[in-house]
Design a protein around this nucleic acid. Structure first.
Length: 461
RNA sequence: CGGGGUAUGGCGCAGCCUGGUAGCGCAUCUGCUUUGGGAGCAGAGGGUCGCAGGUUCGAAUCCUGCUGCCCCGACCA
C-alpha cells in the first residue's frame, strides 16, 4: 500500500490501511455462539470476521475480508511468479459443458443445479475444468502457444450433505484454481512441479508448514496428485509423515521456475520422504522409518494438485497442432487452494487461550494501537501522532480510540490477534515511553515513541 | 442420506412436565463516578416465544404438519 492511501483521518475509504476502531465495523462477541465446535470457527465468529447466512454459507465481515484479501494477495504473487496467468470465470455455468465431459451425471447431488427462465439447465460451478478447457480450445491451436497456465480466484459451491466447522468446510467457498496445458506428459509434469513449488512458497509465506502428501485423485481423475496438509491438532484427518518435513524451508523466491531440472529437484526432494494421509497410508512403510522420525498427527488439507493428462482434452476436443502438423490433445493439470479455508487453517495452527495469533503477512492489521486513556490530552496526542506516522509509512494499523477501559482493549486486541500491540497510556508517557507487546511471544518492549515507530515499520518485525 | 437434538429480545439461557397474558445474565441507550487486563451505581428501551393449522374461555406451554439450524455417522477444496 502506498503512503498516498493514507489520506482520510475519518476512515471513510474502505481500502485504507489505517483505521480507527471507533469508526470501524468490528462486531465482537463476548460469548461463544453455541454452534461453533472448533477453535477457528469460534474465534472467527467472536472476532466478527464472518457471519453465517445459511448452513455452510458465510458472509465475510470487514476483518475477515481483510484476512482473505491478504491471503489472496500472497496466492496471486506466487501464482504469477510461477508463470500462471490470472483471469476470471463466472460462477454460473451451462450444463451442456458438463455433458461434454460426462461429469454432469457423474457429479451427483453435490452439484447445485439451477434452471433459468428459459428452462435451460445451469449450475453453480463446483470447479472449472470444463470451462477452462472450453476457453482454451476456442483460442489455442498451436503447440507454440504452450505451455499455458491459467488461474482464477472465484467462489465455488459444493452442496455438501453436512457442512460444518465454519468456513473450513462450507458449501460456498473461495478457491484459487489453476489449470495447465502442455503438449506432452513431460511438459505437464514440469507444469505440475512449478505449481508444486509455488504451493510450498505460498503456504510458507503464511506461516504454515504445509506438507505435500501423495493423494487419491478422486472424481477429478488422473494419476498424479498431491494434497498439501497443514499440521494442526484440530485437523480433520489423520496424517503420517517423516519428521524432516517439520523443519524444511520452502524454495527461495528467485528459484528458476523455467528450468525443468530445478523444478524436478524441488519435487524430488520434497517427495523423497514418507508422507501420507490416512486413505493412502502404508503402515508397513511408515513403521520402517526410524522411530524418532515417525510423525503421526492431525492435518488440514489446504491445497490439492492433479495431473490428469487428456481426461478432459480428449472428450472436449482441446487439441493443438504439434511440430509434426498433427492434432494432439493437450495434457492438463489442475491446482487448487482454498483461501477461505486457509483463513481458518491459519487460526487452527496459530492461536492461544486469548484468541488468534496472526502471522504478519496475513494479519488483518499489523499493529493494534491502544489508547489507554481517551480524553487525556497527552495520550490522545501521542496516539494520534503514532497513528498518522504508521499510516503514512504504509503499516496497517488499527487504532483503538474507543472510550473503553484498558482491560476491554487488551482483550479485544488479544482476540483479534494482531502481531503487535502498541500500548499508550499516561503512566508510560510520563516517562516518555510507550509499550510494544508482541502478540505471539508475549514479549514487551518499553520504547520511546520514535523507537516504537521504527520498530513497527520493520517489515520483518 | 440414516440417527439424535434444538428453535423464547443482538448473544447465552430459564419458563413448557402441571395452560392464566414472558423472565435472567451479557450487550444496547441516558446520567454520574471510574480508567494499565472485559468497571460500579441509578434509570431506560427492545420479544406477534420459527411458521401454519388445531384443542381450549385462554397456548411460549398441549396436539398435528412444515421449515430452519446444530450434533453423530457415511462423503468432501
Amino acid at each position: 500500500m502506498t503512503p498516498s492511501a493514507f489520506k482520510c483521518p475519518a476512515n471513510r475509504p474502505t481500502d485504507s490501511n489505517a483505521m480507527r476502531l471507533s469508526r470501524y465495523f468490528l462486531p465482537i462477541l463476548r460469548e461463544t455462539p453455541k454452534e461453533a465446535e472448533i477453535v477457528s470457527h469460534r474465534l472467527m465468529l467472536r472476532a466478527g470476521m464472518i457471519r453465517q447466512e445459511s448452513a455452510g454459507i458465510y458472509a465475510f465481515l470487514p476483518l475477515g475480508l481483510r484476512v482473505l484479501n491478504k491471503i489472496n494477495a500472497i496466492v496471486r504473487e506466487e501464482q504469477n511468479r510461477a508463470g500462471a496467468i490470472e483471469l476470471l470465470m463466472p460462477t454460473i455455468q451451462s450444463a451442456d459443458l458438463w455433458r461434454e465431459s460426462g461429469r454432469y451425471d457423474d457429479y451427483g447431488k453435490e452439484m447445485l443445479r439451477i434452471r433459468d427462465r428459459h428452462e435451460r439447465d445451469m449450475l453453480y460451478g463446483p470447479t472449472n475444468e470444463e470451462m477452462i478447457t472450453e476457453i482454451f480450445r476456442a483460442y489455442v491451436r498451436s503447440y507454440r502457444d504452450l505451455p499455458l497456465n491459467l488461474y482464477h480466484i472465484q467462489w465455488k459451491f459444493r452442496d455438501e450433505v453436512r457442512p460444518r466447522f465454519g468456513v473450513m468446510r462450507g458449501r460456498e467457498f473461495l478457491m484459487k484454481d489453476a489449470y495447465s496445458f502442455d503438449l506432452d506428459e513431460a511438459g505437464a509434469r514440469h507444469s505440475y512441479n512449478r505449481m508444486f513449488t509455488a504451493y510450498l512458497r505460498t503456504f510458507a509465506r503464511m506461516g504454515l508448514k504445509a506438507i505435500p502428501m501423495r493423494a487419491d485423485t478422486g472424481p477429478i481423475g488422473g494419476d498424479l496428485s498431491h494434497e498439501f496438509i497443514v499440521l494442526a491438532s484440530t485437523g480433520e484427518s489423520q496424517v503420517f509423515c517423516h519428521r524432516d518435513f517439520l523443519d524444511r524451508s520452502a524454495p527461495p523466491a528467485d528459484i528458476d521456475f523455467e528450468d525443468r531440472a530445478t523444478m524436478q529437484g524441488v519435487f524430488d526432494s520434497w517427495t523423497a520422504h514418507y508422507a501420507a494421509t490416512e486413505e493412502m497410508h502404508d503402515a508397513e512403510k511408515f513403521a520402517a522409518l526410524p522411530a524418532a522420525a515417525q510423525v503421526s498427527a492431525r492435518g488440514i488439507e489446504v491445497g490439492h494438485i492433479f495431473y490428469f493428462g487428456t481426461k478432459y482434452s480428449e472428450p472436449m476436443r482441446a487439441v493443438v497442432n504439434g511440430p509434426d502438423g498433427r492434432e494432439t490433445p493437450v495434457h492438463m493439470g489442475s491446482y487448487g487452494i482454498g483461501p477461505s479455508r486457509l483463513a481458518a487453517a491459519i487460526i487452527e495452527a496459530s492461536h492461544d487461550e486469548a484468541g488468534m495469533i496472526w502471522p504478519r503477512a496475513v494479519a488483518p492489521f499489523e499493529v493494534g494501537l491502544a489508547n489507554l486513556k481517551v480524553g487525556d490530552a497527552a495520550t490522545d496526542a501521542a496516539c494520534a501522532d503514532l497513528y498518522e506516522k504508521l499510516g503514512r509509512a504504509g503499516v496497517d494499523v488499527l487504532y483503538d480510540d474507543r472510550d473503553e477501559r484498558p482491560g476491554a482493549k487488551f482483550a479485544t486486541l488479544d482476540l483479534i490477534g494482531l502481531p503487535w500491540q502498541a500500548i499508550v497510556g499516561p503512566k508510560g508517557l510520563a516517562e516518555g515511553r510507550i509499550e510494544l507487546k508482541n502478540r505471539r511471544s508475549g514479549e514487551r518492549l518499553s520504547l520511546s515513541p520514535e523507537e516504537a515507530f521504527n520498530k513497527l515499520r520493520e517489515v520483518d518485525a
